[in-house]
Design a protein around this nucleic acid. Structure first.
Length: 295
DNA sequence: AATTGTACCTGTCAGC
DNA sequence: TGCTGACAGGTACAAT
């Protein structure tokens, strides 16, 4: 799924476009993507407007102007939130873009929305729309009360980029029997990291992802603490990483892929030492590392 | 408390 | 070409 940098990029893209806008209609094409009673969902959203969009870890948090209910959206693996300025005519090829490559010139029609994988759509008073596309349907939209939100929110750990991501708090987390990989992926410990950025942070810090966190010495903790913040900040600057499904709110891919050192580079030479990057399963996830540079 | 397996769902790709 | 199995950026839950 989109991790912190991707979700943050989506949030920033949506903010100027849908805040203050009134929802005039909701379309639910996949009822299971909504984790609230559908009647309530529609009743609360229609006629209401978006007051603000925040983010907690990988969760997008929509505050409403005329209800205390909060809309939380999790994109999981393949969720996308696409904003379209103008209503589209179904089935047309309008909005095509031309690409040139390998000596051939060809045209890729920009798919019109809604499409096959559109699960939910909102239409605003000015005719613009927000589409939730999600191939695998792991993602969800949920309306929660402030009390329920507080409960959800409180389970998330410290976040790179937030004031609570202090070295002191970081060290507190890094004191279990579990591996670095497992702890950094644990959203109740550090919120927002996923498989890509955990592997990249471990590489940058020179730490093997299967090391038990309690074996890290001060210098290694310092490196890892700094690496996480640098990776996340740089990834946000580059608008996230796109492999296949991730797109920002305008449908654009992220640019951080070219800066990856280990993730999805199994067998390719390490940028530091030239040895092939390894891929093994750790903490249940495909894990990429350089056996020479990470100890 | 921590780890492992399983489930959710659909698409893609490697291998036969 | 077609089939099968493994795997994919995430997380919740049950079992161990």
């Amino acid at each position: 799924m989109p991790e912190l940098p991707e979700v943050e990029t989506i949030r920033r893209g949506l903010l100027p476009n849908i805040v203050q806008k009134r929802v005039v209609s909701t379309t639910i094409r996949a009822p299971r993507s909504v984790r609230s009673p559908l009647a309530d969902f529609t009743r609360v959203l229609e006629g209401n407007s978006i007051k603000d969009i925040q983010r907690r870890g990988k969760l997008l948090v929509f505050h409403l102007a005329e209800s205390s209910m909060i809309l939380v959206i999790h994109l999981k693996m393949t969720g996308q939130l696409l904003y379209k300025q103008h209503p589209q005519k179904g089935g047309s090829e309008a909005g095509s873009e031309s690409l040139v490559g390998g000596g051939h010139s060809f045209t890729v029609p920009e798919p019109s929305l809604p499409e096959k994988y559109t699960r939910i759509a909102l239409t605003f008073e000015d005719g613009s729309s927000l589409f939730f596309n999600d191939i695998r349907r792991f993602g969800y939209w949920q309306l929660v009360s402030p009390a329920e939100f507080e409960k959800i929110e409180s389970r998330y750990g410290i976040e790179p980029g937030n004031p609570n991501f202090t070295r002191e708090n970081f060290v507190k987390i890094m004191s279990s029997q579990r591996s670095v990989k497992a702890v950094l992926l644990d959203q109740t410990k550090v919120a927002g990291l996923g498989n890509i950025y955990v592997d990249e942070a471990c590489f940058r810090a020179g730490i093997h992802p299967s090391r038990p966190v309690k074996t890290l010495v001060k210098r290694e903790l310092d490196h890892l603490y700094a690496a996480i913040q640098e990776i996340i900040a740089t990834a946000i600057q580059h608008r996230g990483t796109t492999f296949r499904d991730y797109r920002d709110s305008t449908g654009e891919s992220g640019n951080f892929k070219q800066l990856l050192n280990v993730y999805a580079r199994a067998g390719e030479p390490c940028v530091q030492c030239g040895q092939p990057i390894q891929k093994e399963k750790h903490a249940g996830r495909g894990t990429h590392f350089c056996a020479h540079c990470q100890t």
